[in-house]
Structure formats: structure tokens, C-alpha cells
Simulated scan of single mutants.
Amino acid sequence: MTIPRGIRNHNPGNIRHGDKWQGLAQAQDDTDFCIFCSPEHGIRAMAVILLNYQRKHGLRSVREIIARWAPPTENNTEAYAVHVARLLGVDADAPINVADRLPDLLPAIIRHENGQQPYSPAIIQRGISLALEVA
């Protein structure tokens, strides 16, 4: 079985090149997506983006968040939002507090992006903790 690109790149959210993220690997051999030095740094970047979606852009529901995370020009955004909402146990249009739901939201997005979610709760929490250091 091949390892999904996002897992290989320690970038389980499949974040595209753009921002100069903390924890980027020195070699950026993937022309489309960032490569991080550890899964925690990739998860940290995901958490920072999701927190900013709510804080800076006022996105409150899973549907709004996923529409920005995975726009319909590249994804089946509706199916993605419904899948993530189901994994969180909420309606896709129900308001959520991203900061409170990161321990559930990050693994749900990772699962959808990669077809698997290989990270322990401890790794997810370390990524969240790194994100909250700058929040």
C-alpha cells in the first residue's frame, strides 16, 4: 500500500505552498504542497489556518470552513463538508467553536484528505499546542 502524499509530506491537510510556515522541511521537492519536518508541524499549520478561518473570516459552520479549505473548483466540497460534519457528530450548518473542536476537526480533515488518519491523539495535541503558542 502506498502512503498518501499528505502523510509522506508530514502535511496531512495538503496545504499548498505560499506562507512560510514554521517547521517547513529544508527540501521542498513537492511542487504543489508544503513538506513539513514533522507531522506535528503540518498539524500545527492546519490548526493555525482553521483558527484564522473563524477569527479573521467569521466562518462558523463545518460547511463554511470546508468551503474555504477545499473549494469546489478543486474538490467535491459538499461531500467533504458532510463527511467531516458526520465525523464530528454535527449538522454541516451548525455553528461550532473551532478552538474547542480542533481535537476532533483535525483528524476528520486528515481522514478526508488522506483516506486515513494515522496520528495518535498525542501527536494531534502536540500540533494543536504548537498552534496555540502563536494564537
Rank of each mutant, 00 (worst) to 15 (best):
T2C: 00
P4H: 04
P4V: 02
G6D: 03
N14K: 11
I15T: 04
I15M: 11
G18I: 09
D19V: 08
W21C: 05
W21Q: 06
W21M: 05
G23Q: 12
Q28W: 06
D29Y: 10
T31F: 07
F33Y: 15
C34G: 02
I35M: 06
S38M: 02
H41M: 12
G42T: 03
I43Q: 04
A47M: 01
V48E: 12
I49R: 07
L50K: 04
L51Q: 10
Q54I: 04
K56L: 15
R60A: 14
S61A: 09
S61L: 08
S61M: 04
R63S: 12
E64P: 10
I66F: 10
W69D: 08
W69M: 12
P72E: 11
P72F: 13
P72G: 00
T73V: 13
E74H: 10
T77L: 06
T77W: 03
E78Y: 11
A79Q: 13
A79C: 07
Y80T: 08
A81G: 06
H83F: 14
V84Q: 03
R86H: 14
G89Y: 07
A92P: 07
A92T: 04
D93S: 07
A94C: 02
P95M: 02
I96S: 06
N97P: 00
V98K: 03
V98H: 06
A99G: 01
P103E: 06
L105K: 05
L106T: 01
I110N: 03
R111Q: 15
H112G: 13
N114T: 11
N114K: 10
N114R: 10
P118G: 07
Y119M: 05
R126P: 03
S129E: 15
L130V: 08
E133M: 11
E133A: 14
A135F: 09
A135T: 09
